[in-house]
Amino acid sequence: MTRHLVVITAGLGRPSSTRLLADRLTAATREQVAAQGATDDLDVQVVELRDLANEIAQNMVTGFPGPQLRAAIDATTGADALIAVTPVFTGSYSGLFKSFFDVIDKDALTGTPVLIAATGGTPRHSLVLEHAMRPLFTYLRAVVMPTAVYAATADWGTVPADGDAPLATRITRAATELTPYLTAPAPRPAPAETLTPFADQLAALAPQE
């Protein structure tokens, strides 16, 4: 059975460090899924919010999504797992990132596993993951991975002599936490309850002649 991983990236530039981080998280997740020997196919779809900016703004005003936004929303709400990455603006997630999740029904992501990540110019903004992103997805009742990944400009530098790059370590750990949701057997649907019509229940309580 094919599992669907949707990667949402809110980077504005091209190239974008936000997209780069998203790609590295995706690659690490693919590696971890392969390491588990999973036989299921993994389908990955990347949603670039930059390309949906106009339709997101129009939807905020009209309440109706355009065709590209509708497809992105359907992919996101139908995913088996999400990787969500935003740049940090003014100490929080970007307005484009928040607006996309604002146009999604608040119950549509209930139970969806989410790996959260962010990029910024300085390590001082790393707490955006805990004071902004994690509460957002908790409100949406998603299942947020314990490890969140933040990449500052300095994290893209050279690898230390011991080869243990902190960013690479966090990426691997986060991907490892997300992988079980993409490799575990799909839960079987609960058997349908057999309901006794109310009239029959009353009849059973009636005195027997």
Rank of each mutant, 00 (worst) to 15 (best):
T158P: 14
D40M: 10
E177G: 02
A38L: 02
S16A: 07
P187D: 03
T169K: 01
I116M: 06
D162R: 04
S92C: 05
A161I: 00
A151L: 07
E130N: 06
I73C: 13
V159H: 13
V47Y: 08
A57L: 12
Q208S: 15
G37N: 06
A199L: 07
R141L: 08
D51T: 10
N54E: 13
I83R: 08
E209F: 10
S94E: 14
S94V: 13
D43S: 14
G63T: 11
V44S: 07
K98I: 03
T179I: 02
A22C: 10
L52S: 07
A57D: 14
V47M: 12
T18N: 01
T76Q: 11
E193G: 09
T62E: 08
E130C: 04
Y150H: 10
A206Y: 07
D80G: 08
A165G: 09
D155F: 01
Q201H: 10
D102C: 05
A57R: 00
T86R: 13
L25M: 00
T18E: 04
L20R: 15
L167G: 01
D51Y: 02
A53C: 10
L109T: 03
T196G: 13
T39P: 02
D23E: 15
I104M: 08
P67D: 15
Q45D: 06
A79N: 11
T122Y: 15
S92T: 13
S92I: 06
P15E: 04
A117G: 10
G11D: 01
L109E: 12
R70K: 14
T110Y: 14
